[in-house]
């Protein structure tokens, strides 16, 4: 589990990037916390700097959109999902449990 920040430091509508490898973005979407891979699956851009609307985040570079609940892209130009990660809060601190790194094809 990776501690991220105190719950009150991530208000509704805000996001934060944690420097894991690969980096992870944590969002507070209307009170629900979500964590996904920070790097857009289309090109190199940080989704933590994207536009949050409901459960969707729009990439700041090319406006690809991802569903925070599933990591699935909801529109082009992204066609591949980003990974989602488990988020918990204990003692007022947000924690992320990174998904197990899938074996890459390489």
């Amino acid at each position: 589990m990776i501690p991220v920040c105190r719950l009150e430091d991530l208000p509704v509508g805000e996001s934060i990037r944690i420097d894991t490898t690969p980096p992870i973005a944590v969002f507070n979407a209307d009170g629900e916390l979500y964590a996904i891979d920070d790097t857009c699956s289309h090109q190199d851009a940080s989704l933590s700097e994207g536009w949050l609307e409901g459960c969707l985040v729009e990439c700041p570079l090319h406006a690809a959109s991802f569903d925070l609940r599933t990591g699935q892209p909801t529109c082009l130009p992204a066609r591949r999902p980003v990974r989602t990660h488990q988020v918990t809060v204990s003692d007022g601190v947000i924690h992320v449990r990174p998904a197990v790194q899938e074996g890459t094809a390489a």
Binding site: P22, T39, R80, R83, T104
Partner: peptide, 10 residues
Amino acid sequence: TGSAGATGQT
């Protein structure tokens, strides 16, 4: 810099 699975497109 891509996410896991990026190489799967090869």
